[in-house]
């Protein structure tokens, strides 16, 4: 998974031995502190609720920086989706040798059409995010597309500029 935003760019490779947890390495180019480091990441599924028409997930996420124990993060990620609707959030508390901060977002979306399995799928979303290093919330539209094992998501805001994510599932 590759991510590019106003605060950092990253490349994240992770492996899930079971659907309950994943381990991985995220290589980060920190634009704010002008640093480069890696996170050894661990994500654990705290709760999943499957129904006929929906799935809800709550994850614990954490990362330990290659710079040492002073650099780490932990937080929660949650989402709930049907074939038509999506809502998700992310909260991270980041400890850094220079300054600690929190990073969070909330995202809601709707699928304009319901594609069949294997089709080209689309989500139209609104994302609002806040990083305490920057202060205010920033809200912007996001488009998400996927087909097969490939997913791309991007949004744009004139304050925070591009927010993009590309994912491939092996």
């Amino acid at each position: 998974m590759a991510f590019s935003g106003n605060m950092y760019n990253s490349l994240y490779y992770h492996f899930s031995p079971t659907y309950r947890y994943s381990v991985g390495i995220e290589s980060v180019e920190d634009k704010f502190f002008n640093q480069q480091y890696s996170y050894f990441r661990f994500t654990y599924l705290l709760n999943r609720r499957n129904t006929e028409n929906s799935q809800g997930n709550l994850y614990f996420q954490s990362g330990l920086s290659s710079d040492g124990l002073d650099g780490h993060f932990y937080g929660l990620h949650g989402d709930w989706e049907t074939r038509r609707w999506f809502i998700g959030f992310n909260y991270r508390d980041v400890k850094n040798s220079l300054k600690n901060y929190t990073d969070q977002f909330l995202q809601v979306g709707v699928a304009p059409y319901l594609g069949a399995y294997g089709d080209f799928h689309t989500w139209i979303m609104i994302k609002t995010k806040k990083n305490t290093l920057l202060g205010d919330w920033s809200t912007f539209p996001v488009l998400k597309f996927f087909k097969g094992n490939f997913l791309i998501e991007f949004g744009y805001n004139d304050q925070t500029e591009w927010d993009a994510q590309v994912m491939y599932r092996f």
């Binding site: 609720r49 129904t51 006929e52 799935q55 989706e81 074939r83 399995y117 799928h121 094992n149």
Partner: peptide
Amino acid sequence: KGMVCDFCAQGIEKTFKKDKTVAKIDV
């Protein structure tokens, strides 16, 4: 239950394709 996303269902197809007794699978 819980199969609401194409991206997530890809894993089901991969899992069953590893089973030699399965001739074909679809979602």
